[in-house]
Structures are given as structure tokens and as C-alpha cells.
Simulated scan of single mutants.
Amino acid sequence: MNDDNTFRSFGKVFEEAYPVVCLPITANDEGIDNGVYFNNLCNKLNDLPFIKGSGNKFGKVLFYLTKIEGNETLENKGIARIQDEMIECEKRIVAEMMSKHLLTHDHYLIKDGSIQYKPMKTGDYKELARIRNNYRHVVGVSKRFNPNLMKDNKNQSSAGQIAKLPLFHRTPAFMWKPGEEWGNVNFAIWYVRIRDRRYTTTPYSGILKIEKMLMTGKEAENGLESDEIDMITANIINERNPVCYGNDARWANHLYPVYMTECYCKSRFKSDISFINLF
């Protein structure tokens, strides 16, 4: 942030991308440690001539448990395991940026989606309380959200208040306390309208949910200062244009730099056909 209270880009790109394969844990029929087995399997895959010849290299072979509960499917369990790997990758990048002093009061990071990470059983960043300081200058911005989760002082849903927000107005910030099982990390959450209701199709089109982890004991007790909330909100509003009319059904909820980053990341993906043809 500079004298005019606007954030500036630091012009650096951190990218961590690698193909993975996710298999059921029953693929390990040798009775050895799962970490060792699937790491060795990854090495064997990368040594195959047709993998080498394609110029590709697998970063990891992941595994998931095959016990099914409720409406779970094996496919969804595999997808969830890959998503967990993506979250760990995300946390590593934030930690690296923090270690290089790239996240400061002048340079905030917008995280596309929630920063309310679910508890992890494994990984270097499984305990949110221990990595909380990395997120001192990180803001989570969600295009989709459940408006009924937030309650007012009378314990009534704030959904109506959120839907009726005038253009460029925000709600008060709510204190969100997920509880001990989430590492006793509290959040400030508020909503802001970045598109005029006249040009949107649903009550919540054009509204963003904004999250900020609370760092100090004072913040955890009293919440964020209004000045900081207003500063973050104003900068979010400044990032709304230009938009992507016609290119995405969620255009009204897009921030332009987030949209462009999504497009860049998707352009780096291999198509389903290309990936399957590796085998």
C-alpha cells in the first residue's frame, strides 16, 4: 500500500505445478510403508521409456483410503486427496512468500476462495495455528458462499442484509470462531457488493465474501479495526474492472486479477485426452 492507500503488485510469479496420480491404498499389496511404496512407484513411473519420451514427469503418486461412508464414492475420495495436495501446495507458496518478506502492509495477497482450511492429519502445514502468522497479509475472497451462515446480534440470518447491499457497500464484519478442532483460529468475515444489482441475475451475484485471519489476542477478542476493513474493502473494489462479460457465468463476482490468474493456471493444465494418452 502506498500514500494513496492502494496496493501495488510486486511483479513476481510463484508457480508450483506437477502432475500427480491418485490410487487406492489397496494398490500397495507388498505390506511395506505406504509412503515408501508410493514414492517408489512414482520413481518407477518416471523411469518408464514412454513417460520419459513424452517429456513429462510425475511429482507424486498419492493414495486414498477405500473405506466408504454414507454417500461417498471412491472417485470423490480420490478427488478430495488431490485437493488436499493442492491446499498443501498453496500453503507452501504462502510460506515462501512470507519468508522472502513479499507479504507486507504494502503488499497483500488475495487468495481465491476461503482461508478457513480444514484440519489436516498429515503434512508440514497441518496445524493452522502454527502457520497463522504466514497469513497476516492474506485475504480470502469467495465468489460463492452460504449467506445463511452469518447471524446478526439477534441470531437471525443476515442473508437479506447481504442481498440488499447497495453498490460498493459492505456489511459489518462478523467474528467467526470455528472452534478448537480448527486450531482455535478466529476470522473476521464481511461481504461487499462490487456490481450493481440492476445488472446481475441473482440476489448474490456481484457480492464477495471476504475473510481475514485474526492474529493478535486483541483481534481475537475485539475483531479487526474498522480502518483496516475499509482499506481492504476499498482495494478489493478497485480490482473489479475490467470484467469478463460473456466469458464466465460468474463474471459479476470476478476480480480481474483473480480471473486472469485462473485463466493462466487453466492454460497450463493438460487436457484429459493428453493425460490419459500418457498411459
Rank of each mutant, 00 (worst) to 15 (best):
L109E: 12
H101L: 04
K121T: 10
L103K: 10
I110L: 15
A95C: 14
L109A: 13
V94T: 06
T104Q: 04
E90V: 06
S99L: 03
M98Q: 05
Q116P: 01
H107G: 04
D106P: 07
E96H: 12
H105I: 04
H101A: 02
Q116W: 02
E88C: 05
H107N: 11
H105P: 00
Q116N: 11
C89L: 07
H101Q: 07
K91L: 13
E96K: 13
K91E: 06
A80V: 02
T104R: 00
E96A: 13
L102E: 11
L102C: 06
A80G: 02
M86C: 15
S114I: 10
Y117F: 15
V94S: 03
D112K: 15
D106I: 06
K118S: 14
G113Q: 05
K91M: 08
M120L: 13
T104G: 05
C89D: 04
R81C: 09
Q83F: 09
I87M: 00
K100V: 04
D112T: 13
L103I: 12
H101M: 03
L103T: 12
D84A: 00
A95R: 13
E85D: 07
Q83S: 09
H107W: 01
K118R: 13
D106E: 15
M86G: 15
I110V: 15
S99D: 09
P119V: 15
S114W: 10
V94H: 00
E88I: 04
I93S: 00
C89S: 04
K111A: 13
K111M: 12
L103F: 12
M97F: 10
D112V: 13
R92C: 01
I110Y: 15
K121R: 11
H107F: 02
L102W: 11
M98N: 10
H101P: 04
S99Y: 02
D106G: 01
L103W: 10
L103H: 10
A95T: 07
D84M: 00
Q116F: 09
M120K: 14
I115L: 09
E88T: 02
K121V: 09
R92Y: 00
D106N: 03
D84H: 03
S99E: 01
I115Q: 03
H101E: 05
C89Y: 04
R81D: 03
M97P: 08
I115P: 01
I82G: 11
M120W: 09
M97A: 13
M86W: 08
D84V: 05
H101Y: 06
Y117N: 13
Y117T: 05
L109V: 14
H107A: 02
A80R: 12
M98S: 14
H107L: 01
H105D: 09
H101G: 08
K121W: 07
T104C: 01
M97R: 15
E96M: 15
A80S: 09
D106T: 09
Q116E: 14
D84L: 03
M98K: 11
I87T: 03
E96Q: 14
C89K: 07
D84N: 03
I82T: 14
L102D: 06
K100L: 12
R81I: 00
M98A: 10
Q116L: 14
I87L: 00
T104F: 03
Q83E: 10
